[in-house]
Design a protein around this nucleic acid. Structure first.
Lengths: 208, 208
DNA sequence: AATTCCAGAGAACAGTTGTTAACTGCATGG
DNA sequence: CCATGCAGTTAACAACTGTTCTCTGGAATT
């Protein structure tokens, strides 16, 4: 893998990224299934036909956006699951990290929340795949935790799924209050923290 | 309130319902923000301009669909929360009812899951409002449960929200496997049941 | 029986869409 | 240095969109 690209390919990737960025911006107030190819190229300042040099369709662009959006989320997950400390500390740190990620990548979070159940099949599938990966990763981390002693594989995956879903729900809630006064943002964080805590308590008593 | 409508109004409501039904059908493979008014009228077999006799815009129609879709869900919630028996029995009955509702009203469930985070603000808000109502209702039922003794209002609402979200997540999962072999549908039901159970366990030990 | 009302039809509008084909200019590799 | 490759342009297409205005037939009201 040469990381020194020719001027040619460098410029190409630059426009490609511009298309992705423009699309992400336009998707703040609509869904992917209504995103037009001309709309995107117009926002970038490039001819409509240039779009085809990079993507077969807007659905194709959507799949690329999934990679980008969930790629940025991946390192955060690793940080959360590898975090040390007691249960409450880890939960508060996790909620804080989620809030921070939503604040720095709001468009990514919005895109995933929106298109996870959205109208474009290929994009839905791409998201499901990546989330399944995340769940596997969470599960792998759970295995190493002493609390998980005696748990079977199925139950570990069911808990991992629950955590992933809860993480997305929380992220979406943070997104809704992004512009709201800090008081309300703290309220959302407080609710999310206690929901996570309740799940953790359920986890600790699962084998009773 | 006279429930005997004139021929006039009866025919009008009939067309209105036809528009709603056609829209719901078209929304199986796209999102509301890409649904065209002409598309809907064409599916019904009526002139495009007739649309305006019933809705200001497709967003307006979307809000009407929220009423319809979540209206059909309301009685189910009441059944679930007023269900008797021990925790495990109630959970299994709840999961069964959700599965049944998804099987009988798949388009409604898809619409809510899709547009909850979708691209049309007014519809998103309408869904949030209704879901907040549901959470209040769940909370009201939780108060009556002896397990909730000593819980404060905030924690009850946070648990109610968790239940509502979990219900929607489960419904969406059932939707994904609607056409799948029964084995996989049973697997989904099994996972959902254990997730609910884990939450219930957390609830029982919340005050420890 | 005469009048009003109104759900729906019809036609026309300016503007938009995705896709095609043939092009231009410049970075690239021989 | 010259030939090739290819990112992006230009022009044109048929098809589609939301919205307006005008009209019509039959139910509702008097």
């Amino acid at each position: 893998m040469s990381h020194t690209l020719g001027l040619r390919q460098a410029q190409k990737q630059k426009t490609r990224q511009a298309l992705l960025d423009a699309a992400l911006g336009l998707l703040e107030e609509q869904s992917l299934s209504s995103l037009g190819l001309r709309e995107v190229t117009r926002a970038v300042g490039v001819a409509p036909t240039a779009f085809y040099r990079h993507f077969r369709s807007t659905a194709d662009l959507g799949v690329a956006l999934v990679e980008e959006a969930l790629g940025s989320l991946h390192p955060m997950i690793r940080t959360i699951v590898s975090s040390s400390g007691d249960s409450d500390q880890r939960i508060e740190r996790a909620v804080g990290l989620i809030a921070q990620h939503v604040a720095t990548h709001p468009a990514h979070v919005r895109f995933i929340a929106r298109e996870r159940h959205g109208g474009v099949q290929s994009v839905r599938e791409a998201i499901q795949d990546q989330l399944a990966r995340f769940a596997e990763e969470v599960k792998a981390a759970l295995v190493k935790d002493p609390v998980s002693a005696g748990w079977n594989d199925d139950d570990l995956l069911m808990l991992a799924d629950l955590y992933v879903d809860q993480m997305l729900m929380t992220a979406s809630l943070f997104l809704d209050v992004l512009e709201a006064p800090e008081e309300e943002r703290r309220r959302v964080a407080h609710v999310a923290t206690r929901q996570m805590r309740l799940i953790s308590i359920g986890r600790e008593h699962w084998l009773d």
